[in-house]
Nucleic acid binder design. Structure first.
Length: 287
DNA sequence: CCAAGGCCTGAATG
DNA sequence: ACATTCAGGCCTT
């Protein structure tokens, strides 16, 4: 199999624009050509080189620069489809998010669309997050668990969450109580962590995998949403074909096992490249 | 176990 | 205009 171009693996340059617009994060904005993003109780400012400045002066490896990206890209380059995607978006990365914000974000994402998810989360932050200013700009931090936990479901609904408001409320209470401990989950193995967070109503297979991949250090998580199923059917095996509208737990799990067999333990990175590729293809049809 | 139906909301379609 | 449909699923029956 043809190896990836040497220069690409060497250059190792992160494309912040593409990474931010790859469906992983929702609360990022450009001010005067500079990206600012909410990350829990922190705000991140990034420059063209993906250097991160933290409002809280924290050391955050947001773009996972410590991952052995060259090794990972080689490992997941198992077929021409992923290789094409990697060659097209070599600077795409998976980010390391604040777990609570990530968890709430993807509960909100269920049966929704990016534009609406953004609006919902912005309103949630405005209503329940602390207001701060930084570099002469006003921000609302992402709400702390307790701030949402003590709100009523009706108040949460004013952010446009609909039936998800109840889930968001419940999740916040669980996190606040310490019943779910993110630091512990980061150290747990994939399945243990997945079972644990799926106890929260509103977190099913797909949402759980997003949370695990983007905030809990589980690079083998491979979120299977509508898009990914379509991609797998289109470019991969017929085994990924479904006649039914809903995918059962068992089907999801079997699919994930096949995916790990194919891509290996960094499958989550493969998912991100495939997803980005197909989304761009789709959008072009409408531009 | 599996499959169908309903769900907040708002933008896009007809 | 207005009604349907559908969108990065999930839960209940």
């Amino acid at each position: 199999m043809r190896p990836l171009p040497y220069e690409m693996l060497r250059s190792n340059k992160i494309n912040t624009e593409i990474t931010i617009n790859s469906g992983q994060v929702f609360l990022w904005k450009k001010y005067d050509g500079v990206w600012y993003g909410l990350n829990g109780q922190d705000i991140l400012k990034i420059n063209e080189n993906a250097d991160v400045e933290s409002y809280q002066n924290k050391e955050i490896d947001f773009f996972r620069k410590n991952d052995r990206i060259e090794h990972i890209l080689k490992t997941i380059s198992k077929d021409k489809t992923v290789r094409f995607a990697i060659e097209k978006y070599p600077g795409l990365r998976i980010v390391r998010q604040d777990p609570f914000q990530c968890l709430i974000s993807f509960i909100v994402s269920a049966n929704s669309n990016i534009q609406k998810i953004k609006t919902n989360l912005e309103r949630l932050s405005e209503k329940f997050g602390d207001r701060v200013s930084w570099n002469e700009k006003e921000f609302h931090l992402f709400p702390e668990p307790k701030a949402i936990a003590k709100a009523t479901i009706e108040e949460i609904k004013t952010c446009g969450l609909g039936y998800r408001a109840k889930f968001v409320h419940e999740a916040s209470k669980i996190i606040q109580s310490g019943e779910l401990d993110f630091e512990y989950l980061k150290k747990s193995d994939y399945l243990e962590a997945k079972y644990a967070i799926q106890e929260v109503t509103g977190i099913g297979n797909k949402v759980a995998d997003c949370i695990l991949l983007f905030s809990l250090e589980k690079l083998e998580a491979f979120p299977l949403d509508r898009w990914m199923i379509r991609i797998l059917q289109k470019y991969y095996m017929d085994e990924f074909k479904f006649e039914t509208k809903t995918i059962t737990d068992r089907q999801y799990q079997l699919m994930h096992e096949k995916i790990i067999d194919h891509f290996g333990k960094y499958a989550g990175y493969a998912q991100q490249f495939l997803f980005k590729m197909e989304r761009e293809n789709y959008q072009k049809k409408w531009l």
